[in-house]
Nucleic acid binder design. Structure first.
Lengths: 181, 181
DNA sequence: CTAGACATGTAACGCGTTACATGATTAT
DNA sequence: ATAATCATGTAACGCGTTACATGTCTAG
């Protein structure tokens, strides 16, 4: 799996909750807020087969029910290890600018596939990166805003505002973890 | 250009501000908040050549300066038309869930390549879609939050929170357009 | 008896990533 | 000299999209 195939990691994360078929996974992407991922068969089935080739999952055909055969996937020990390594890797400055989706995906499985300490560490690192990036954005807007058309300035402001919202969220989330410790 | 090549539209939008070379465009992606796009030559140059093949831009080699030759691109009438059609197309519900980046890119050039009326119409449509999607998310969180681990619940909350922030932004932006009218 | 849900797959195509290649000019 | 910046390109590779293909079971 390429390091940037978010879909692969999303599948691996979901399979750690429980064994599922490709169709189960498609339904999750079609009907829940995980819907940022594609639910198309042309994405899911090849991705599952790739995971299987790499021994991150193994599959088993169930003929049991009266329905058409289902192929159910579950992660291997090596798949769980790879997922955890991806999930707990340090946060780079670049991640905050170009891979926010990936960061949130990593975080969303934190309690299930890592532990609360990893979640706290993640949030601290995220807060640190945001604290350094937000002023850069603010500075850019201040320096260039005047000469930009309204829509451009507003779009930039939207980006800044959403980073500020994320910052607030991360601090709140960290507090919740600390209260629960 | 495929309808989902954001990079192509970003280039076309920037070239409407002024003629630029591939290198100029790379620097923009490398040094400004447009940095969500790749500044790698393997992305930019092929994308420019594709735009040229489709007659959305035309290029001209400048030997003028003492530097190495620069190939400068500028949009054609047909390129401007295509950009505008993409930019002013109606907002679909799906756009808000899976293509927020595209929406913001469309908006950011609105004053330059369309007009304030289009910007207002865009913001109204965005507000409408957010007003219908946010309750769905909230409902999902309410129904499933209890049985989710803390990190999962928080990640979902982050998504919800950022949609709420965007909603607030869109209303504020619309007000600014109305005040200026 | 037929529409819709269940269920899994493949093939063509286009795009971005990574890595490599080339060469000119400017600053140290 | 040589490192850094300017400047443009190509090739291999992997992934997602779209469209197509196939077949079963259940509900009306």
């Amino acid at each position: 799996m390429q390091k940037d195939s978010l879909l692969g990691y999303a599948l691996l994360g979901l399979l750690q909750q429980q064994p599922r078929s490709g169709y189960d996974l498609r339904k999750i992407f079609a009907n829940t807020p995980m819907g940022t991922f594609s639910d198309s068969p042309g994405a899911i089935y090849p991705a599952l087969h790739r995971l299987e080739r790499q021994k991150y999952v193994r599959s088993q055909v169930l003929e049991s029910s009266s329905l058409r055969r289902r192929r159910v996937f579950r992660p291997t020990a090596s798949g769980r290890r790879a997922f955890r390594a991806w999930q707990t890797q340090p946060i780079a400055s670049d991640d905050v600018i170009r891979r926010l989706d990936e960061l949130m995906l990593r975080f969303s499985f934190m309690d299930e596939t890592a532990n609360p300490a990893a979640a706290r560490q993640f949030l601290k690192a995220l807060i640190r990166e945001l604290r350094s990036y937000i002023p850069v954005l603010r500075q850019f807007l201040k320096a260039n805003g005047r000469q930009m058309p309204l829509s451009g300035r507003l779009a930039l402001g939207s980006g800044l505002h959403s980073y500020e919202a994320l910052f607030w969220w991360a601090e709140t989330a960290l507090r919740k973890y600390k209260n629960r410790k």
